[in-house]
Amino acid sequence: MAKDPTHQFQIQTIGEPILVGPLDLTFTNSSLFMVLASAAIILLLMVSTSRRALVPGRMQSMAEISYEFVADMIRSTAGSDGLRFFPFVFTLFGFILMANMLGMFPYFFTTTAQIVVTSALALLVFFIVIGYGVFKNGFGFLRVFVPSGVPIYILPFVVLIEVISFISRPVSHSVRLFANMLAGHILLKVFAGFVASMAGIGLVGVLGASLPLFMTVALTALEFLVAFLQAYVFAILTCIYLNDALHPGH
């Protein structure tokens, strides 16, 4: 049971079931770590900016760097008018990064390895892009499907491809994050499981176990990189999609 690599993604209820009509809103380990991620971000930012120092300390520097990091990310992909989405992108980036990092602790639950969570976030971005794009550009938003400078005789074909790629965005957006976190954690679990099972078969096994142990250590470092990178990728793709809503003409 403990060696089942998918066991770590199992939802476990915490406390009494909460049933609202037909909905089961029971608090689970997944809920706990989503709440923890939000609480950790709020706490970190609250503590680090509480002194409002002109010359920032270590904590405040970190908060300021992440602020500038996200702001630069938006400016470079969606332009300065993309900064109206700054709180949204910052929240998204912070939430996913914190959830990924919390997932790196042993026995902690990785909420971003739940397809329903990543899908919800990707669909949120998708509908914000459509909603804001139509609100700001009206029918002009349809230009997002019509790349400029394409010869007229292949235009219908290109538009078809653009529509398909636009609709498939939330799928790739959500599955990328979900699959990366899922695969990384399964891989870690499998290699760590090798260590335990090999060490269990005697002296040769103990020596042999050093190989998967080394792999586990290396993969842990890689997973930290992936945890950051996938949060970054999710956020920057959000910026690129928002750019379509802000400037629909290619």
């Binding site: 939802i11 608090f27 689970t28 997944s30 809920s31 939000s38 329903v116 969570v117």
Partner: peptide, 17 residues
């Protein structure tokens, strides 16, 4: 637990936002 996860995602993400 999709419903539960979505609900708590909306709560935590919304509050954070």
């Amino acid at each position: 637990y999709f419903g539960s996860q979505l609900f708590w995602l909306v709560v935590s993400f919304g509050l954070l936002y």
